[in-house]
Design a protein around this nucleic acid. Structure first.
Lengths: 372, 372
DNA sequence: CTAGGAATTTAAAACGTTTAATCCAGAGCG
DNA sequence: CGCTCTGGATTAAACGTTTTAAATTCCTAG
């Protein structure tokens, strides 16, 4: 009984012994040059006249081995440049220390903050994180899940691709790969999911524009195929209706969610008759693209036409004019997702279902009163 | 002899059997729900009355097993939802199918193209790629190398952190982790390295400005601590000297390499007496930040002050005014690096040392004749 | 028929860990 | 002196593959 407690304690404390402490390792020119043969636990065991079991326990700081023995072993391991073989270990323990993270596109700055905070959280716990894009291709996402299963990953954090079938998530869960969703949800799934409250967010910016006096407000970028897309549009529509304003279908300009898309949408916005006096953009990238396009067309953003973004990326503040946008709580989303997954791994019960992070409006210079 | 040939052939062809073909798998509600116990090779072997050896070979499409047997085995594996255990396999084969990629910052758009092309190349070869940031912290980079060694990764592509000691690269190489460098070089290392020809690149933009008539040209952003930094500065200096122009030390405004840094550099540039008429920026991010800053200050970029970038990011073309910049060949760098690593893994000899990709100038509206 | 391959299949030994179950030597105690 | 207890160390059985070498079956030619 005592044994078990002690055992689990050190197991969770320090899962993987660091194999390499280069600066401290004594340089052994000759042997390092060729690396005659792989150094393993038994190499150390033989050299020191103990068993591999002892070496294994010592390297993981088990209290089961005498202090003096432990130090002797660790010192020797360091000296000869032992490298811990995680594959072998994880084959035995069925814990790999790998956590998969898959999002639409790693390089999309929207995910930057999320990934960053996930990384922080996982680093702290000693897990390695394995990153991938799915580019909204369900097959690519499934291939990644498959890879994780094969590698025996401990869990997965995913921003599901458009059209992800419930079965894919169940596949992961059923095969012992605890899952947490971020940024998007999969209808019908009951795994924990963290996302910003998108409807509330676009509601904020739309209301802000209405208060400034705008009546004809376009909505640029995005798709109705994701929960995020539907919610953002809904928030806009609801705010308009709440103010007793009509929503014209031609004000909705759907499309991709990058700068180029915003830039390309410029013409379409300007073609609407009568011209809208403001545009709620899907995200900051679209907004910045649109602002660039409007500037090219000779219009002054914030005066001739007001623009709002979403996400509050770093560059929203330094765009010209500075972009009014909605802070999305990405950092919080990532942190909570990672923490929740770690909880699940630790065996604690967590409650599933969606949790919404409340966004905030950041008013800057890209919005102003409509032209008289 | 024949055996060996055949053996290696199918080994390289299809390293890992795909374990999951969800859409084709027959739904078995009851068993799927609980997943009584792990399905392994022996599960299949017993069910079909063959040996695990046969199953193993069949799943990897070995020509050693009869066509009919192979199909029977593969079908059954699919039906019961067998998942290939890579850890076990790689313990035996010492090939993990993992390739590590570490760069300064994944989310930096400069690396976007590189990573994308690496991903393309590796995907094609069936390798999984494990991504990480080092944020220019040597320790973080070393921790990543350590993790890769522990996981038994097959190779690593890295953009070395500032101050990477030669020993770290040797550590990887000596322990059987073939290394290829991108974007930066480590002095003294002889592993293959691919980067843009930075000196030539800034030479191009500097020469372009000189030809337009500029005489006082500042250089904004970047550091002298990387090979890239030194080369870019050198290219600028050489071009100036070649034109018989003086280079004032106060024209060099070193700093971080993001938009905010460019934005913040605005004041410093404008404070120089007499004011430069053009600025060669470290990269597009800095250039765009600077352009934003100049616009805020009421100056017209391309007329009052010309600006050049570096990298030719997507947004360079849609910035206002469109940014004159240098295309860096990132895609080529990534492709070549991945290809070279795969060559090394296949056992072919590749020649080490640095290879430079030649950049190209992209003239747009952010550069013009100096003000009279 | 039968020898001799060719075509299939298999037994069993790795691969390098972890850990439950023992073992052992002293220490403490009646 | 015999007994239990305990801190330390060890033994040996996994973990799920791959692959060598051998065994078996199947043909085909002589």
């Amino acid at each position: 009984m005592l044994y078990r407690v002690v055992s689990t304690q050190f197991r969770t404390r320090n899962r993987f012994p660091p194999s390499l402490e280069l600066h401290e390792r004594r340089g052994c020119e000759a042997e390092a040059a060729t690396l005659a043969q792989k150094i393993k636990l038994s190499t150390i065991a033989e050299a020191l006249g103990v068993s591999t079991a002892t070496v294994s326990l010592a390297l993981r700081d088990s209290p089961l081995v005498a202090d003096q023995t432990r130090e002797r072993i660790k010192a020797h391991a360091r000296d000869i440049g032992y490298i811990y073989n995680r594959r072998a270990a994880s084959l035995r323990t069925s814990r790999s220390g790998i956590i998969g993270v898959v999002v639409h596109d790693i390089m999309n700055p929207f995910y930057a903050e999320i990934l960053r905070s996930i990384e922080d959280e996982l680093d702290r716990s000693g897990q390695t994180f394995l990153l991938s894009n799915h580019y909204d291709q369900v097959e690519k996402q499934r291939a990644f899940i498959d890879t994780l299963l094969q590698l025996g990953a401990d869990g997965i954090i995913m921003s599901p691709a458009i059209g992800t079938p419930l079965a894919d998530i169940e596949l992961a869960e059923k095969n012992g790969l605890p899952t947490v969703l971020i940024a998007r949800n999969v209808p019908g799934s009951d795994v924990p999911a963290f996302r910003g409250d998108d409807a509330y967010g676009t509601g904020l910016s739309t209301k802000h524009l209405i208060e400034l006096g705008h009546r004809r407000i376009a909505m640029v970028g995005g798709t109705d195929q994701t929960s995020t897309g539907r919610d953002r549009y809904q928030g806009y529509v609801d705010a308009m209706k709440a103010a007793g304003l009509e929503v014209k279908p031609e004000w909705r300009i759907a499309g991709p969610r990058n700068k180029l898309a915003g830039f390309d949408a410029t013409e379409k916005v300007l073609a609407i008759e009568p011209r809208p006096t403001a545009a709620v953009c899907w995200n900051d990238l679209v907004a910045i693209g649109l602002m660039n396009g409007l500037a090219r067309a000779g219009l002054t953003v914030g005066t001739d036409l007001s623009v709002t973004g979403y996400d509050d990326l770093q560059e929203a503040a330094i765009a010209t004019p500075a972009l009014t946008t909605v802070w999305n709580g990405q950092r919080e989303v990532g942190r909570r997702a990672a923490k929740t997954l770690l909880e699940r791994l630790a065996g604690h019960d967590v409650h599933g279902g969606q949790e919404l992070i409340r966004p905030e409006l950041r008013v800057r210079q890209s919005t102003g009163a409509p032209p008289a």
